[in-house]
Simulated scan of single mutants.
Amino acid sequence: MLWVKAFHIIAVICWFAALFYLPRLFVYHAMSEDETSRERFKIMERKLYRGISTPSMLATIVLGFWLVSYNIDYYEASAWFHAKLTLVALLVIYHFISGRMIRSFAADANTRSHVFYRWFNEVPVLMLIAIVILVVVRPF
């Protein structure tokens, strides 16, 4: 079980690293004015999303459910866990919204400003704070 927990934590860290960095790339991409920069950001965004973010998300989910399987009765009865699962579901939605934004940038169809992406970048930070508090403190 400790190996599963260790790899779950590693996957979570990798996923959040990607969720923190990808919107920063969007900020810089939205601010870029030359074609060379825009093309470079398209490549960076695609590789980060497909090569790190999505595999890390999948590993996080699979390993998380594997951990739950060790004591499913406890987790089913834990309100903090249901709140955490809700936040994880919202993060998965955020992940796929980011994927749509990548496709928008790839098609040169982005209409949002760098300011929007600066705010968008704060969402996973708030989610991380809430999830860590739920897991460690277990307030309810």
Rank of each mutant, 00 (worst) to 15 (best):
F140E: 10
M101F: 13
L126G: 15
L90V: 15
N71G: 06
N110R: 00
Y70H: 13
Y117S: 01
E33P: 06
I52Y: 07
V132H: 03
L87G: 07
A11V: 05
I61E: 01
A17R: 02
F7N: 05
H29E: 14
L85I: 12
M31H: 12
L19K: 00
A106F: 06
R118S: 05
Y21Q: 10
I102L: 02
T86F: 14
W66Q: 12
R118N: 03
G51E: 03
L2D: 02
W80D: 11
V4E: 01
D34L: 11
R50Y: 12
L48F: 10
R50F: 13
I9G: 06
F7S: 12
S104W: 00
K5C: 05
L2Y: 05
V68F: 08
R138V: 07
A18C: 10
W119K: 12
L90G: 12
I10M: 08
V68M: 14
I129D: 11
K5W: 08
V137M: 13
V88D: 06
I72T: 12
N121I: 04
S69Y: 08
S56A: 15
L85K: 08
H95D: 07
F96A: 06
L2M: 01
Y70P: 06
K42E: 12
I129M: 11
K5G: 03
I131H: 10
P55M: 10
D73R: 06
A107W: 00
S69C: 09
D73E: 15
F26Q: 04
F116D: 00
D108M: 01
Y94S: 11
L48D: 00
P124Q: 15
A17E: 07
Y49D: 06
Y70Q: 07
E39H: 07
S69K: 11
A6W: 09
V88P: 01
V27E: 05
E45F: 02
P23C: 15
P139A: 13
H114C: 07
V135S: 14
V132P: 08
W3S: 03
A109F: 02
L19H: 01
V123D: 15
A30L: 02
K47G: 06
L19V: 09
W3V: 10
A77R: 10
A79F: 15
A89L: 13
E76V: 07
I13T: 14
G51F: 12
Y74C: 05
R50P: 02
R46W: 11
F7L: 12
D73W: 06
I61M: 03
T111V: 03
M127L: 14
P124T: 12
P139W: 10
F120C: 03
I10A: 15
S78V: 05
L58C: 08
F116Y: 15
E35G: 02
N110Y: 00
P23Q: 14
E33I: 09
